[in-house]
Computed example of a mutant assay.
Amino acid sequence: MIKEPEAIKMIAIDIDGTLLTPQKQIAPRTQAAIQAAQAAGMVVTLATARRYENSRQFADILGIQIPLITCDGALILDHPDGTVLHTQLLPAHLAQQAVDILVAHQIQPVIHHIAGSIEETWSGHAEFDNTGLDGYFREFPQVLRMPHHLLCVDQPDPIRVVAFADEEAIERVAPAISQLPCSWNRITRGNYGTAEITVMQQQCSKATGIALLAKHLDIAMTEVMAIGDNHNDLEMIEAAGWGVAMGQAPERVKASANAVTATNLEDGVAVAIERYALLSTRNADSNSRKRATCL
């Protein structure tokens, strides 16, 4: 029998494969459940691998007016004004080592920077571009190009280094990346139709991002519910007081969770919020009224 969570004060929701349907929409039931949680006094935020630039529209739809956890925890920005609240930057010398490894495997590195509140995209010259990058560069066309060997040398510490390639190429490069003193994750198929690998500061993850935001809001991690569907959600699902895996999540992610909800085709986020956040609030109110009656 699944134990019940403590009273939930904060809900952190992954975007792709979790909040969104396969058609990249927020289902009406999911939006209604999130709004009910907000009305009940819970803080709802997004914890995503996406950049702020392509995350904020979903926060606007949901009426979120607190910081968002973006770039797999490396960048937390206030919403809706976009002010940077916290960063976990990758040291530039390690970023260059990651770049060198990717280039040795003929994979184009993409470097993410934050300059004030402006997100920047840097990359090498086009000899290692591939079709998997086409969609990404269409979405973020303002790319600063420079020689690969100078991408991070004597440059500011970046948010992260990412790469988009076929699954076999990412598999080949992963062992070398894993030897660096950094945090990294990979997914087999991302938003741009390719496998992806991400290199970040050594302690960085969605879990550390959630912990930083929870501390900022004076909320204990035991009072946080995290919902996700992929390997880069694993740490936050494990770290939260109540971790929920989507129904289509890999088995390893499901095994790390307190509960498994329905898929993103079946309103899985709404089901989780209704079952574990809103119901626990109603139960707490009911128990409180019972204690008051006894007194």
Rank of each mutant, 00 (worst) to 15 (best):
V244G: 12
G116A: 10
Q203W: 09
M221W: 14
E120W: 03
S55Q: 02
A169P: 10
S280D: 13
T263S: 12
A33T: 06
V84F: 05
E120L: 01
F128Y: 10
A257L: 04
A214V: 02
R138C: 06
A98R: 10
I111N: 03
I227R: 11
T131I: 03
S123P: 03
L46H: 03
T48L: 04
A270K: 07
L217Q: 15
A195P: 14
E6L: 08
Q96V: 10
E171C: 08
A92C: 06
Q203H: 10
L68N: 00
R282K: 03
E120D: 00
D72T: 14
Q142F: 09
E168I: 14
Q97L: 06
A255Q: 13
D233A: 05
K24V: 10
L278H: 00
Y192K: 14
Q155P: 02
A220S: 10
D229E: 09
H112K: 08
H148S: 04
A98W: 13
H148D: 02
A126E: 14
A40W: 10
V224S: 04
Q96F: 05
Q96I: 04
E196I: 07
E120T: 01
V173E: 15
N230F: 02
D134C: 05
A245E: 00
V244P: 13
K3G: 15
C152L: 04
L77G: 05
Q65C: 14
I210A: 09
V84A: 02
P109G: 00
A39S: 11
M236F: 07
I66A: 10
G193D: 06
N264W: 11
D166C: 12
G193R: 06
N191M: 05
E266P: 08
R186Q: 07
P91T: 12
V44H: 11
I69S: 13
Q57Y: 15
F137I: 02
G41S: 10
K254V: 01
N191I: 03
L278M: 03
E274D: 13
T222L: 15
Q96C: 15
A272F: 08
I114A: 13
D16Y: 01
I34R: 01
A272N: 11
Q96H: 14
I8V: 08
I159N: 03
E53Y: 09
